[in-house]
Amino acid sequence: MARKKQLLETAETYVSVSMKVNGVPCSAKIEPRTLLVHFLRDVLGLTGTHWGCDTGNCGACTVIMNGKSVKSCNIFAVQADGAEIITIEGLAKDGQLHPIQEAFWENHGLQCGFCTPGFIMQAYWLLQQNPNPTEEEVRRGISGNICRCTGYQNIVKAILTAAEKMKR
């Protein structure tokens, strides 16, 4: 009984949020302090978005919110109320990999894979902003994401390859 009461009390402090994630409308009651990354992972079960630092440095939690790349560990889910979100799960269409995903695969742009969804989402935004980036621009454009395995060379190569693919 005590536990039930406790849970009910907690429920009173919950707030509703609604957003469209990968084209699917979803809503839930959550603690107001819930971070967007935790909402995506723990409430919606979209575990492709990772978290790695809590301070907005590593970029493993990068998703697209209303067309812009954001670090979902630095945003409360309530700030995303009404937003359109794209996560790594929403990139492939009809079983067809997105050219960026293909390019990461073909160019060995990942090793342990933990930072990969964040890099792919950042690249997705970067190539929308600048469809013809130079190596220098790619390196600067992904400098908000950290990879500890690849030394970045093949990530950069993958993004440059993806840019070519997306022109076709």
């Binding site: 992972r41 575990t47 492709g48 799960e89 990942l110 894979g113 969804p117 792919i120």
Partner: peptide, 19 residues
Amino acid sequence: VKRREDPRMITGRGRYTDD
């Protein structure tokens, strides 16, 4: 040879401990 690990990781289907 292209890595066989990659398809799950580039689509968000990797399964890590926190998942």
